[in-house]
Design a protein around this nucleic acid. Structure first.
Lengths: 238, 238
DNA sequence: CACAACCCTTGATCTGAGTCAACTGGAGCG
DNA sequence: CGCTCCAGTTGACTCAGATCAAGGGTTGTG
C-alpha cells in the first residue's frame, strides 16, 4: 500500500500546485485527488486527438505539453503550451463537446487526469468549486484574446518582443531560459522557425536583447522592447 | 406605471431570447430582468472602451454590436459580432478584470445591461445559474478557438468559404443576406475589404457562389466550398 | 566512437495579401 | 434636383514573411 499512498500524495501535490485550484478549500482538493489518476508520459507521446471524446481535465505536474491544431496543409499551430501547474482540456470537459485540438508531450511528462464525469459531478455538487472554475475559465478566455490580439495586430517583431517581456520572470536584467524549443515557440507565435531566428537576431543586433547561449535570453532595453511590441521599430532595426 | 411595466417586459423578453440564459428557470429570468436595465443606442455609438472597468454583462435585443481591438497602427480587428440574443463583456464581468476590447454599435440597437455586482451576486447565490454560465462560457471559448483556427490555419479564400458555410441559415440552395457591412465582415476575418471583395469575385467566377445583389449570397456548390475552406483550390480558381 | 536525427541559423527567392489610387453607385439631405 | 458621403469594386504595385536550400552544432544511441 505504500505505493498507492505515494501515488495519492503526488496526485494531491500536483493539484495543489495548479493555478486553477489554488484557492480551493483543502477538503475539495482531497476529493479531486481521490478522483484523479496519475499519468506518466514519455516525450512526444500523443495524449489525445482532435475530435476525440474528452476524457477529462488534465493538470501538468512536470514536463510540458503542447495543445495544437493542424491545418489542411499539415502545418501545426500551438494554441497552448502547458507547463507545471497548468491545465488543459478543461473547456471541452465542461462544455460537453469533442476535443477541438490535439495534445502531445514535448518532453517526459507527469500529469493528473480528472475524468469528465467526476469533474461534472464535483461541479454539480459544489457551488464554490463551480465559481472557482468560472473565474479560472475567464482567465483562459483572456489569454486566448491576448493570443489573438498578438497574431492579428502585431507583426513578427512585435509578437516576439511581447512574448519575451511576458516570459521574463525577473522582469529585469537577468538572463532567463526559454522553457521550450524555439520551433515550438515559433509555432505558438504563428511564425516559422526561420522568421523567429531572424527576428531574434535583429533584436540582438539592435542591442535590445542578448543571447548568451541559445535557449537563454537576456533583456537589455526593456523600454525599447515595449515599443517594438507596440509597433514602433527602432531606427537602427535592420 | 404602464411605461415601467412595458420596459420590464421588454427587458425580460430580451433575456428570454438570449442563448446564454435559454435553459434558465423562469424565476431566475425574473430576477435577472429586475436587475437588468434597458439601453437604447443609436448607430455608431461607443458602448465602452478597452481598459474601462466592466459595467456588466450586455445582452443584445435588436440591432448589432462589434467588439473589437485597435492595433498600434490604428487598424481595427473585430473579435465578436453580437446580434440579437447574444451577449458580450460577460467574461470581464465574471473575471473581475478591465475590459480587453472596445464595443460600438453598428446600427440602432437595444440591449440589456446586467451590472457586474448584480451578476456576481446571482452567481454567488444560485448554483444552477453558475453551471449555466459555465457552459455558456465554454461555448465562447470554443468560438474563440474556431476564430483563431480560421485566422491562423486558413488563407483568405478558406476563411471566406468557411464563413459563408457557417452563415448560411438554409444550409442549402437559397440566397441569404449578409447581416453586416462587408467591411466589418472583412475586419472580422482579418482581411481588408479589398481582399474580401476580390475573394468573393473569384468564388463567383468559379461558380461556387452567386451574388444576386450585393449583401446577398447564394451558395451553389457547397461541396467545393467546403474544399476551399479546407485549403483545396478548384483548378479554375483565378 | 561513429552515425543518425534533429535543431538552429543564414541566404536566396517567391508570393499572398496589404496599400494606394481611381471609379461606380446608392443613400441621405438641403 | 444636384450635392456630398460612404460602401464597394477593381487595378497596379509593394512588402513581410513563407518557402526552399544548405551548412553547422548538439543530442542520443547502438
Amino acid at each position: 500500500m505504500p505505493k498507492q499512498t505515494k501515488t495519492h500524495e503526488t496526485t494531491r501535490s500536483i493539484l495543489e500546485n495548479c493555478g486553477l485550484f489554488r484557492s480551493l478549500a483543502p477538503q475539495w482538493l482531497g476529493l479531486l485527488s481521490e478522483n484523479g489518476s496519475l499519468r506518466h508520459l514519455k516525450r512526444n507521446q500523443m495524449i489525445f486527438r482532435q475530435g476525440d471524446v474528452c476524457p477529462g481535465l488534465y493538470c501538468v505536474g512536470s514536463g510540458s505539453v503542447k495543445v495544437f491544431k493542424i491545418s489542411p496543409a499539415g502545418k501545426e499551430h500551438i494554441l497552448h503550451l502547458a507547463g507545471p501547474g497548468q491545465t488543459f482540456a478543461e473547456v471541452a470537459a465542461i462544455g460537453e463537446f469533442s476535443l477541438p485540438a490535439y495534445a502531445q508531450t514535448l518532453e517526459s511528462t507527469t500529469c493528473v487526469l480528472i475524468p469528465t464525469i467526476r469533474l461534472r459531478h464535483l461541479l454539480a455538487t459544489h457551488h464554490e468549486f463551480c465559481l472557482q472554475l468560472l473565474s479560472g475559465m475567464s482567465l483562459w478566455v483572456r489569454q486566448l484574446i491576448a493570443l489573438l490580439e498578438d497574431i492579428v495586430l502585431r507583426d513578427a517583431a512585435g509578437r516576439v518582443a511581447r512574448h519575451l517581456i511576458d516570459a521574463d520572470p525577473s522582469a529585469g536584467k537577468c538572463p532567463f531560459a526559454l522553457p521550450i524549443r524555439k520551433k515550438d515557440l515559433a509555432s505558438h507565435l504563428n511564425l516559422t522557425s526561420e522568421t523567429l531566428s531572424r527576428t531574434l537576431r535583429r533584436l540582438t543586433d539592435s542591442g535590445l536583447i542578448q543571447t548568451p547561449t541559445p535557449q537563454t535570453v537576456r533583456i537589455i532595453d526593456r523600454e525599447q522592447l515595449e515599443e517594438v511590441s507596440a509597433g514602433i521599430l527602432p531606427a537602427e532595426f535592420e
